[in-house]
């Protein structure tokens, strides 16, 4: 249960960490989110903040949603998402939360939608081994057997070819290397799921 903010993946680069090592890093653009609703355990059964992110023409929203934003007194936002927090009382409706909530050196978890790979075989999808390319082999990338001899069915959950990627993936414990409040940029060590410009959620890691 920790504060989560929405952002975009900008791309990857190289970064010198505090000890002078060059590490692989991902740059994230965290445009400020605005608190639309505060959920309290007494009223809603759990503590959370509902946040709005991005811009949208009001006309594209349904009337009930427009009313929801009007009640909070904030501009309509493209995305609404919720972050479970243990201290909902320290937030108030209309407050904007930007990249400043993160600090250098802390750990964050980043959730995104991984790049879609389409229909793939078992080697790419499940990491099966190749068969030898020579010595009389023909079926180099085939999945092998679907199960033991004598078993008159295929086990449920058998790893087969199919659609891979485009799943929700969370990468945990990424170190924050740099917070640029002016541009709203966050540099984290390591890679992050999804394509560039892809939407990601950045969660402060549980202590």
């Amino acid at each position: 249960m920790a504060l989560t903010l929405m952002g975009r993946k900008v791309g990857m680069t190289q970064w010198f960490d505090g000890e002078g090592r060059a590490v692989a890093a991902t740059v994230l653009l965290v445009e400020p989110s605005v608190v639309v609703q505060v959920k309290r355990p007494e009223r809603d059964g759990y503590g959370a903040v509902q946040l709005g992110w991005g811009t949208i023409r009001p006309k594209l929203l349904s009337k009930p949603l427009r009313g929801h934003f009007a009640r909070a007194g904030v501009e309509p936002r493209r995305r609404l998402y919720e972050a479970r927090v243990s201290d909902p009382d320290s937030y108030e409706v209309g407050q904007t939360l930007g990249v400043e909530v993160f600090s250098e050196g802390e750990l964050v978890d980043v959730t995104g939608t991984s790049k879609g790979k389409g229909f793939t075989g078992t080697i790419k999808r499940w990491g099966f081994s190749y068969r030898p390319k020579s010595h009389g082999h023909k079926l180099i990338r085939r999945p092998g057997t679907a199960g033991p001899m004598g078993l008159r069915k295929v086990m449920k959950g058998k790893k087969m070819p199919g659609h891979a990627g485009a799943q929700t993936v969370t990468v945990r414990n990424l170190k924050v290397l740099k917070v640029d409040g002016e541009r709203g940029l966050l540099v984290v060590q390591g890679s992050v799921p999804g394509p560039r410009k892809g939407i990601v959620k950045i969660r402060k890691h549980d202590a």
Partner: peptide, 16 residues
Amino acid sequence: MTGMDDLIRALEEEQL
């Protein structure tokens, strides 16, 4: 959104 590479470049500038 455009100019995302420019964001990285501007950020890298500080490390030069």
